[in-house]
Write a protein that binds this DNA or RNA. Structure first.
Length: 254
DNA sequence: ATGGCTTTATGCTAAAGA
């Protein structure tokens, strides 16, 4: 089973890129982040053989899960705060697998409530995943975590130190989530440094190769044991009118 | 660079992203 993630930075602006990528890569599931609008083009994907479930809001955020197999929606918001209106979480069951699609808050600037919201969101996420682990529900969680796990996952660790994506508080929360027994799928078979999923639009970051790794799959133990590969596909970042993120895809053995 | 681009909003500038 092939499962992919991609922060598309507006599904409207990136529709053709996403359709082309689906046709070329044929994943069973694609979890999309940053839809950036209320409308989701469901029928465009049905034409390609994908069922779609989307959680959207006006202008910002938004996540959608596309699947060749039937989708059961388990949660369309992260439990733990009924006042949280932001469209960042979609938990589904597909082919008997619990697949969680997240767009974790950015958190900048760090001296504002945005950073507090990020850390609180990560704490709620840990609670939810802990619950699934306690109930022995195997799961894969994927998406834009807005977390640089280690210094080797960015081009300039010193320069990123004060940023919400690499602050020590952020990495501690990320580690606490991993310590539920999850694995960073990319690191199961790949020990290379400077492997990125995002390159800024500004300052020639893409042509200079200055990126960060912030889009991740975390797997619970039974799925880690089934992991065959986890690959970053940098090609879409080089297209005209590209998203600033590029897809990551895992393959699980039957 | 105190964000150099990019996108959404019912716009003619602001907000957000990372």
């Amino acid at each position: 089973m092939k499962i992919a993630i991609w922060n598309v930075n507006s599904i409207k602006a990136r529709l053709d890129h996403v359709k082309n990528w689906l046709e070329q890569n044929q994943p069973d599931v694609l979890m999309i982040q940053e839809l950036k609008g209320l409308d989701f083009p469901t029928t465009e994907f049905e034409t390609l053989g994908y069922e779609a479930e989307a959680v959207t809001q006006k202008a910002y955020n938004g996540v959608a899960t596309l699947s060749r197999h039937p989708i059961t929606v388990e949660q369309n918001a992260l439990p733990g705060d009924t006042h949280d209106e932001q469209a960042r979480y979609l938990e589904t069951t597909i082919n008997g697998l619990r697949l969680i699609n997240i767009y974790l808050p950015n958190g900048n600037p760090v001296d504002t409530e945005k950073f507090d919201y990020k850390l609180a969101w990560m704490e709620r996420l840990k609670d939810r995943l802990k619950e699934l682990r306690s109930n022995d529900v195997p799961f894969a969680i994927g998406g834009d975590f807005n977390v640089i796990p280690e210094g080797r996952d960015c081009y300039d660790p010193e320069g990123w130190q004060a940023d919400a994506l690499f602050r020590i508080e952020t990495r501690r929360k990320f580690r606490a989530i991993l310590n539920l027994g999850l694995s960073d799928a990319f690191r199961v078979y790949n020990n290379e440094d400077q492997q990125y999923t995002f390159w800024d639009y500004q300052a020639g970051a893409w042509p200079k190769g200055l990126g960060i790794r912030i889009d991740h799959f975390l797997l619970s133990p039974p799925l880690t044991d089934r992991l065959q590969s986890c690959v970053i596909d940098p090609k879409p970042r080089g297209l005209e009118k590209a998203s600033d993120h590029t897809p990551v895809m895992i393959e699980l053995r039957d």
